[in-house]
Design a protein around this nucleic acid. Sequence first.
DNA 1: CATAGCCGTGACAACGTTGTCAATTTGTCT
DNA 2: AGACAAATTGACAACGTTGTCACGGCTATG
Lengths: 342, 342
Amino acid sequence: MTKAPPRRAKIQDVAEAAGVAIKTVSRVLNNEPNVREETRQRVLAIVKKLNYHPSLSARSLAGRRSFLIGLIYENPSANYIVDVQHGAMARCREDRFQLLMHQVTGRGEEMERDVLGLVDQTHLDGLIVTAPLSESVDLMRALDRRALPFVRVAPNDVPHQTPYVDMDDAGAAREMTEYLIGLGHRRIGFIIGHPDHFASGQRLLGYKAALAAHGIDYQDRFVRQGYFVFESGMDAAKELLTQPDAPTAIFASNDDMAAGVLMAAHELGINVPERLSVAGFDDTYIAKTVWPRLTTVHQPTYDLAYTATNLLLQMLQTGSAPQSMRLGYRLVCRASTAVVHK
Amino acid sequence: MTKAPPRRAKIQDVAEAAGVAIKTVSRVLNNEPNVREETRQRVLAIVKKLNYHPSLSARSLAGRRSFLIGLIYENPSANYIVDVQHGAMARCREDRFQLLMHQVTGRGEEMERDVLGLVDQTHLDGLIVTAPLSESVDLMRALDRRALPFVRVAPNDVPHQTPYVDMDDAGAAREMTEYLIGLGHRRIGFIIGHPDHFASGQRLLGYKAALAAHGIDYQDRFVRQGYFVFESGMDAAKELLTQPDAPTAIFASNDDMAAGVLMAAHELGINVPERLSVAGFDDTYIAKTVWPRLTTVHQPTYDLAYTATNLLLQMLQTGSAPQSMRLGYRLVCRASTAVVHK
DNA sequence: CATAGCCGTGACAACGTTGTCAATTTGTCT
DNA sequence: AGACAAATTGACAACGTTGTCACGGCTATG
């Protein structure tokens, strides 16, 4: 015999116990003005006593908002997306919003259908869009059409007036490249990120700018296309390292690929950092777990997501105008880079 | 001038366009019986034409279910939790349920309050509980009290009759240990997992069983407490490896700690696998990215989560009796283990 | 001292679905 | 054909909130 669970308290119960109308309880709960302090306290006491929690469904239905925020992403490295998730989650929690994670399937039209399906079904209040989804103009137009507020966690590039939070990818890549140059490296390999990501181009730009600023010729043979995943970094590194006059340093556009470079070096019997310096980008968990530990650009992933969510919630709650932000980065020098060998 | 977005179609609109009552539309949408095929088709056509999507909130309110499933976890390694998430997500998607991820804060009473707060606020239909939360009897009792169906992704141990999905941790650990013994190792170090996880004890048991079966004495000095995180593995390994007559192999209870062991070995100048064999557990992403690649136990994390979600959804939808499952594992032999050196 | 305006409160109608139950149509069996 | 059961459909009341608006009491103003 299972004992019937106690009926959940509803607003009615609270109202009766407090001797007020349900609307007053509602006011208290939503921090609306025009409630006497004494009344507010009385209601709050009862709420606590009855362990009352308003029904999200009822609130959504009546209030025409769902308290649900979506976070969509495509296929980023696990280490990266977890940081994003936690940043967004942390901010949501502060305002009692819930976060709905959604890994998008497909690309192009199919991706769009997937996202819109989510939006239509769940009545999301807002959306956090990560790269490279944030680069689909079609998607953004579709979201606009539904009047759905959203913030992008991505570099600003798309010709579209929406708020975003990003960092200076080009600047960071340039600084890292200059750091390598400062170590005496002249033949510096570069592994480009996934072509769908705007950031990939920015990082390449930074690399080129640093070379140019130091009078080093840009050479195609030192540059390879990667896809932000471990294997692509490994493959690219093998190509780079098996040519005559191979690079003495390789800068990969993210940590996963840099880890792949390390693996390639190990397999080729090339010591890092003695014979080869390796640098990554992102400063995710993997950077600290490979050997040698990766020199990399610290990207404030958690803060990026937190900030994006913050912007979104402000837009939703105070109706404030959309704004964008750029956060700082910093170089983290660990054991994978060293002065060039003679 | 922003053009007002088109009003969302509601069930009423569909009903009128199809010339039926809203209840009939509802029947069609919920696959209820007793609708003439012709009517069903007519309704479906209109639904598609109007791009109608039922309101989750209204459905929840009226139908007393939310189509929302919670996935709660504490602080597991990023690589692990992402696999869990995707497994659960995939299954949810099949039945148009949404998944609400929730990282639990605090421990003991505070943890409980956190989870119950989530449950009370969102009216979840069900919950996926991962270790070590799944080991709190108090929490499970509290969930029962609220009559909330849940499935645990965790080894079955707790004296509590709820469905779970797990794998044979003890058997796997035993097999891995025997594999090391088979390579000729006799001094085998072991790093225990986080003490809050039941699986930690199981894996230790398997280690001990293998030793016993092969007439090898269990020695405390070869065993250290770890916490499932990289640093703890590194610290433990340093202790194990700096003693006289150090182990020739170390079996860590998860991959993160095994990666830590590799790091320690590198720092101590001990070659892996020539002078030291290292084995992990879980087969997460990290196992393939460290050097040398880790020999480990492949845990079907994705499937575990998928299966757990499947069980939960079946209970919810068909009201079927709770059942539990055990999934298989397999040893993955990579480059971090080798025949013992002379 | 009258009057306008604000504050605090409550009554009641949404919000968009599903559950219940009754009404109608259709089919089956003598 | 008549009687009864089953299949199909619809009317209407929930579900638990928030939005709207009205009302009384109090304060500031002329």
